[in-house]
Computed example of a mutant assay.
Amino acid sequence: MNNVTVYTTNTCPYCTMIKNFLDGKNIPYKEVNVEESPEMMMELMQKTGQMGVPQTEINGQWVVGYDPNSIMAALR
Rank of each mutant, 00 (worst) to 15 (best):
N10W: 08
K30R: 15
C15Q: 12
M51Q: 15
M45S: 03
Q61D: 10
P54G: 05
V32D: 10
E31N: 12
V63D: 00
D23H: 12
F21C: 06
V64W: 02
G65L: 14
V34R: 03
V32P: 09
T16R: 14
S37M: 10
T11S: 11
F21I: 02
N2Y: 09
Q61T: 12
E43G: 09
K30H: 13
T48K: 01
M41I: 02
P28F: 05
T56S: 01
V32Q: 06
T8V: 09
P38W: 00
Q61L: 11
V34S: 03
Y66H: 15
N69F: 13
T16Y: 13
K30S: 12
E36V: 02
Q61R: 14
F21K: 07
Q50P: 05
K30C: 05
W62T: 04
T11A: 10
M72I: 14
K25R: 13
G49N: 14
Q61A: 12
L75M: 15
K25F: 07
M41K: 13
V64H: 04
M45R: 13
T56E: 03
V6T: 03
E43I: 06
P28E: 01
M17H: 10
C12K: 00
V63K: 03
E39P: 00
Y29F: 15
P13L: 04
T48W: 11
Q61W: 06
K30G: 07
N69Q: 15
M42Y: 04
G24K: 09
V4C: 10
N2D: 10
N3G: 02
